[in-house]
Design a protein around this nucleic acid. Structure first.
Length: 249
DNA sequence: GCGACAG
DNA sequence: ATCTTGTCGC
């Protein structure tokens, strides 16, 4: 019933959060230890968070898919209070406590270890090279990538028009990610490596997960789940239903 | 100094 | 992220 929104020691100020990023960024492993994209039996986890700022409430979702079939193997949610205000570049501090809780819950009920985490946002494509996907990867040790819908502060050439076409996402002259077309003639997504995944592999995983739609199936499933969970939790609160007061699956 | 800025 | 109807198309 008790859902800590801010774990002990969680940063309270922007300065503290920046210090944490500077410390943890040193632990990022840029070499590839990710499973083969689309490999049967590999568990890929999609993660997302929905907010109700009015009620200071967040709902996180973690969904496990089979990398080959894209079948949903397990789902988990977690609820809490907003852990940090939204500050561009510090998104992780807002979302990670609830995401870790959902991920723990998912491990319990699936009984399987994730081979890859797919986050809504950035990994290396970040002002300090330590976005949400990098942060979550370092904390869990699981290979991770970030797939975002917008280029944030970076620029890229327009990738070619076909699925699979990509262009470097640049911070000046440094390649920090890829603009990747996942469907013919559809707006690209912005992919970057988080932890223990190369950029090339991050693109391959993204394409393998986005077979029919612009966004990876992992992201679509997690997005739908956390939104539904938040709706139900808010309704429950309005009705004064105690069953919605804590965490749920 | 001002605006822009993952979700 | 979220506020929000209908509409065009596969």
């Amino acid at each position: 019933m008790n859902t800590p929104s801010r774990p002990a020691g969680w940063p309270r100020t922007e300065a503290e959060a920046l210090a944490v990023q500077d410390e943890l960024r040193l632990r990022v492993d840029g070499t590839d230890h990710s499973p083969e994209p689309g490999a049967s039996g590999t568990v890929v986890v999609g993660l997302d968070v929905a907010y109700d700022d009015e009620r200071d409430m967040v709902a996180a979702a973690a969904v496990a898919l089979d990398a080959h079939s894209l079948d949903v193997l397990a789902r988990a949610t977690a609820f809490g209070r907003v852990a940090f205000p939204y500050v561009p570049g510090l998104l992780a501090f807002r979302e990670i406590p609830a995401l870790l809780e959902a991920l723990d819950s998912l491990r319990e009920k699936s009984g399987r270890e994730p081979g890859l985490l797919v986050c809504d946002g950035y990994g290396r494509a970040h002002p300090r090279r330590f976005g949400l996907a990098s942060h979550l990867g370092v904390l869990t040790g699981v290979p991770s990538i970030g797939v975002a819908k917008n280029p944030f502060v970076f620029t890229s050439a327009e990738p070619g028009p076909r699925r699979g076409d990509s262009a470097p996402l640049l911070d000046g002259t440094e390649e920090v990610g890829s603009a990747l077309r996942t469907q013919d003639g559809v707006k690209p997504v912005y992919v970057s490596s988080g932890h223990r995944v190369s950029l090339q592999a991050a693109r391959a995983h993204t394409l393998s997960l986005a077979r029919r739609y612009r966004l990876p199936e992992t992201t679509r499933c997690a997005d739908a789940l956390c939104r539904a969970a938040l709706r139900e939790a808010v309704q429950g609160e309005v009705r004064g239903d105690a069953a919605y007061g804590g965490k749920q699956s």
